[in-house]
């Protein structure tokens, strides 16, 4: 693989290395003020839209707050209710099923696409097309797939019938609904994930592949011995971000199955929304969000630890 193959992106690491060599010594103190200035807009947004609501939500989780009423302190009552709430545990299982299918398929396909992009094509058009689904609003994606999957008149089922397969209620069947929703979101996010991984691939020095080729390693061996190990930190970041996002599946469910049939697609975020905004049990809904927060924090922490995301094998 020559540098010319991917000029724009491949040159960057090289440039960065030269820059590092000839780095002028700066007094770090001088950076503080402009740095704070640059952080300020983000910090304000973070404080106002994340930290403040988070603290308030944490407080509400100990109250019986109904959306338009007063909040009375009830201590740990909501947490006790939650532990014995069958729908909460059901929601966790349903969400987990979604995450496993969604992340599993998405990561594998994205990895494959990224490697293909790096090794086979440099076409900007291909990269653009891959990203296209990501640029469409989630609700639109969900609705279009929903219509195409209509068991009586959806185009997918008409196609299935044409080749002799029985029409399926993809969104309506308790067995198929979660896999269907998970795969619809794979379709939407896979290009984006592939691009993130592709960017990671660009940091792997091409000399390694050249050396491997000289030593007689094929594409497959190079992938498992060079690409995967060196991609680890990037993959870890991608997984943390996509898994966290995956746990928060909401919009696709909200505009299609609304939790049904029975409770087959009542994912945790939809259950929380339903409790808070349809049934006004804001206090109890806040309790569930605190639980979800703790679960996500733990998952992310162990992922980062296990995958040693803060270390690279390139240095």
């Amino acid at each position: 693989m020559s540098m010319a193959a991917a000029p724009a992106l491949a040159e960057q690491p090289a440039r960065a290395q030269t820059a590092r060599k000839g780095k002028p010594t700066k007094a770090p103190k001088n950076d503080l003020k402009p740095a704070l200035l640059f952080i300020l807009p983000a910090a304000i947004g973070f404080l106002v839209f994340f930290i403040y609501p988070a603290i308030k939500g944490f407080y509400y989780s100990f109250t019986d707050f109904e959306l338009l009423g007063d909040a009375n302190w009830v201590g740990l009552e909501n947490y006790q209710t939650m532990l014995s709430d069958e729908l909460f545990w059901n929601a966790l299982w349903v969400t987990l099923e979604y995450v496993v299918i969604n992340i599993g398929v998405q990561t594998l396909v994205a990895l494959l696409l990224a490697v293909l992009m790096q090794r086979l094509t440099t076409s900007l058009l291909v990269r653009g097309v891959l990203l296209l689904p990501y640029l469409i609003a989630n609700v639109v994606v969900a609705l279009v797939w929903y219509w195409m999957c209509n068991q009586l008149i959806g185009i997918i089922n008409i196609g299935l019938e044409a080749i002799g397969v029985e029409p399926q209620a993809f969104f309506g069947s308790p067995v198929l609904s979660i896999p269907t929703i998970a795969l619809v979101n794979v379709w939407r996010y896979v290009g984006y994930t592939a691009l993130l991984i592709f960017a990671g691939l660009q940091t792997i020095p091409p000399q390694l592949y050249e050396a491997a080729a000289i030593d007689g390693a094929g594409e497959v061996k190079a992938f498992f011995k060079i690409t995967l190990p060196l991609l680890r930190p990037v993959l870890a970041m991608v997984l943390v971000v996509t898994i966290t996002g995956s746990f928060q599946i909401f919009d696709t469910v909200a505009v299609t199955t609304a939790g049904g049939p029975v409770n087959a697609t009542r994912v945790i975020y939809y259950y929380i929304y339903d409790l808070a905004f349809n049934r006004y049990h804001f206090g109890y809904a806040s309790t569930l969000t605190v639980a979800l927060f703790l679960i996500l924090a733990l998952v992310s922490f162990f992922q980062l630890k296990l995958m040693r995301a803060d270390q690279t094998d390139l240095d």
């Binding site: 929903y146 209509n150 009586l152 008149i153 209620a169 969104f171 309506g172 069947s173 049939p261």
Partner: peptide, 22 residues
Amino acid sequence: MNTLETATSMGKNALESFGAGK
């Protein structure tokens, strides 16, 4: 009558399928 699965798959709304003569 159609199943609940079919009803869910058509968005809990028979309008379009009725329009298609189903």
